[in-house]
């Protein structure tokens, strides 16, 4: 926004203007591209992948498989990295995955108190609230309060366990299979698995519930 002549700022600008952050990003990217550190075309492919193709659908398929295949479930709980890789979901930041399973006795929630480590290959990019300081700080101190704000209240007998992600370990919550889903196949089941249910701030949807 600086560096323009004053007359550039009248109400009838016929030229373009970039926001401060946009200018900083373009400056950095053009320097790195000129020096061969990054390839702008490769960056576009990366962005497209995370924005449109990864999403939480990969994780939903992992969960649906675990619900329908006891051997896969056992493998997932024992070595999530290998089990997830076997489905073809590999990539950045999913190298050391740990799957934690919700039961009647225990509900799991994932956070990254330090910054916002997140299992991108299975869940895509994190939602805004996951990256916010209130969530990061409060979910550890008051998980039931945070869950209540998400509209989720669990029986007092259910233990709530909070998992803090790190640069090395990423967690995937396996939500409980909803009642009334016994007749559904893996594909229909995956539709019930929401992103939040795999972070632990929600439950899997009941069949027929609005999306």
């Amino acid at each position: 926004m600086s560096g323009h002549d004053p007359h550039d700022h009248d109400d009838h600008d016929d030229h373009s203007e970039l926001g401060d952050m946009d200018v900083r990003v373009r400056a950095l990217e053009s320097i790195l591209a000129a020096k061969g550190y990054v390839d702008p075309a490769a960056l576009d492919v990366l962005i497209d992948t995370y924005q449109t193709r990864v999403g939480p659908r990969n994780g939903a398929r992992v969960v649906a498989r675990a619900w329908t295949d006891p051997d896969f479930r056992a493998w997932l709980l024992e070595d999530a990295t290998a089990a997830i890789t076997s489905l073809g979901f590999v990539g950045r930041q999913g190298e050391h995955m740990v799957a934690v399973e919700n039961t009647a006795a225990r509900h799991n929630i994932v956070v990254c108190t330090l910054c916002s480590c997140y299992p991108w290959p299975v869940l895509g990019l994190p939602p805004v609230w996951y990256k916010s300081a209130p969530y990061r700080a409060r979910v550890v101190r008051d998980p039931r309060g945070v869950l209540a704000e998400f509209g989720l209240s669990l029986p007092a007998t259910t233990e709530i366990r909070v998992w803090d992600s790190t640069a090395e370990v990423r967690y995937l919550v396996i939500p409980r299979r909803p009642p009334g889903s016994a007749a559904l196949g893996a594909e229909a089941l995956a539709e019930l698995v929401t992103r939040d249910s795999m972070i632990g701030t929600g439950l899997a949807r009941a069949p027929g519930a609005p999306t």
Partner: peptide, 16 residues
């Protein structure tokens, strides 16, 4: 997940 394109570019540069 990205509110503006610059966010996506900053994200992708760190990965690259």
């Amino acid at each position: 997940v990205f509110r503006e394109p610059w966010e996506a570019h900053a994200f992708a540069m760190a990965l690259a």
